[in-house]
Every structure is written in C-alpha cells, then in structure tokens.
C-alpha cells in the first residue's frame, strides 16, 4: 500500500505526545484514527516509500507493500534502525533472504555541533569567508578565479 499499518501491532503511540509516524512523514500521510487508536496512511498513492515512518515506529507496526501498479507481490524490505547503524532484511519473491548492516552516524544523537571545532577568521559581514572558513576548508585562504 506503499506503507501500511499492521492493525495488531499499532498501539496508537499511547505513551507519546504525538504519534511517531504522524510526526515524521514528510508528506503528511500518516494519521491516527482516534476511535480505533490505529494509524493509517491516508493517501498511499502519494507515498514515496521513504521508510521514515517505518524506521521510527516504536512498535514496528509499519511495513511496506510495494506499489501494486508495478511491483510483483511477495517481496519485502525491512529495516531495524539503531542509534549508530541500521540492519536491513531483504526478502525476495523466490524466498531468498539477504541481510545487510550499515553505519549511520559517528557521533552521539544530539551531538552535531554546528561549527564543530573550527576557528573563525573574520568579523566582517561583507567578507566572502563563512563562519568557519578558511579553517574548515583546510586552506590558508579562499580561492578566487585565476586571471
């Protein structure tokens, strides 16, 4: 359905202030049916299969069924995202299974320091040097076109 919610697993993110899937979907597709306390994708044909909701759901209640207009049935791609790496399980239509694990970040979550530890070299707003330059370029100065 592109992404779809497995009824049995979704708990409507009761424990959270907002539902994780609704918070994250870049296309505003996931909504919570407050009566059933189950989320659903309200516009499957506008889903990019970006997997943002799948990766984030605390109950692993979201899966993806490939676009029915061009994807043969029976395969699946399932992520398990941790804080430093991600595990993927790819299941083929013919039953073959492949597993992959890749790193996703080298710093602790929340620790991206905007200017890192680079020095700034100018106070001049009109200078073409940006805040961390030229230090962050690894150069002594900014390039200008050769005449």
């Amino acid at each position: 359905m592109p992404s779809y919610v497995i009824t049995e697993k979704c708990d409507g993110c009761k424990a959270l202030k907002t539902t994780a899937c609704q918070y994250i979907c870049p296309n505003d597709l996931m909504v919570l049916d407050k009566e059933k306390m189950k989320a659903y994708n309200r516009e499957p044909e506008m889903c990019w299969e970006c997997y943002s909701c799948v990766k984030m759901c605390p109950q692993q209640a979201i899966d993806v069924r490939g676009y029915a207009d061009f994807v043969p049935l029976g395969a699946s791609v399932t992520p398990m995202r941790g804080s430093n790496d991600i595990m993927w399980t790819v299941k083929f239509r013919n039953g073959t299974i492949k597993r992959f694990k890749f790193p996703i970040r080298t710093t602790a979550v929340g620790e991206a320091k905007p200017y890192a530890d680079y020095k700034s070299s100018t106070e001049d707003l009109k200078s073409p040097l940006l805040a961390t330059e030229p230090d962050s370029l690894g150069l002594a100065q900014l390039s200008v076109p050769k005449k």
């Binding site: 299969e49 993806v64 490939g66 994807v71 029976g74 699946s76 791609v77 083929f92 073959t96 890749f102």
Partner: peptide, 26 residues
Amino acid sequence: LEAEAWEDFLDMTITQAGLWASQNIA
C-alpha cells in the same frame, strides 16, 4: 560489491531494492 550495490539503494531509494527483490533480480 553486492553489499555496496544494495546499500546504494537502501540508503536512498528503498523502493528499488524492493523492486529487485520482487522481480528476483540479483
């Protein structure tokens, strides 16, 4: 090479990984 090829999709176009799996494309 196999891992690199699959990561290329899994990192940015997961649909393509699913499409290959669904069409039994290695």
